[in-house]
Amino acid sequence: MDKNRYAIAVEKLTKMYGNGETEVTAIADATLQVQPGELVALLGPSGSGKTTLLTCIGLINEPTRGKVVIDGITVADDGWKNGIDLKRLRREKLGFIFQAHNLIPFLTAQENVMIALEINHLSKNEAKNRAIDLLTSLNLGHRLNNFPSALSGGEAQRVAIARALANKPKVILADEPTAALDTDNGKNVMALLKKLAVENRSAILVVTHDHRMVEGFDRIFQVSDGRIVD
């Protein structure tokens, strides 16, 4: 496997919880690769292990065995690699989109994007300019100073996408990004993700159990009982 070709490369990843009689295997020998500019789905029912796989790739959950490579950097090889700075990698390489948008309620739309940039050491002015550009490009220029509570579901999710894109990550991980949206808004979000994957050359891995949204994906991995079956 030429790991450097892929934005995400996962090889025989296993994640187990507990030990002895209480040991549960959440992911077993999962292998997948996602290229830059690809929009890929992890499809499966609730409890199938797709979110666990996403958290392992998202450097949140330590894999028990197997290898994870993000943008050519091996981050896990039978556990986290020694000396790896997970927070920094998350800041610089990854963008996250959540089911319930997870915008910070006490920050405006613009500040929600700015915070991701400021955490990554951008100056306030740079962060502000980039946040305004991003939100305007996502048709949210009129909502810059609105708090999340004043945004519609679709608008809030677009702000969340802007935040995920803020640091121009190589990999965007989305956990059920359309689950809280109606069909039209869901399709709009998927179209937007597809467009961004191509434009930004980002690999986008989407966890979903929503079969309505499968049309736009380049590839779909079916997850069942902790295994990638297709």
Binding site: K87, L89, R90, R91, F96, N102, I115, I119, N120
Partner: peptide, 16 residues
């Protein structure tokens, strides 16, 4: 809690 978890997820340092 959710805000803090989100901040951690997007890579916020503990000092933040």
């Amino acid at each position: 809690i959710k805000v803090i978890a989100t901040l951690k997820l997007i890579g916020a340092q503990n000092r933040v």
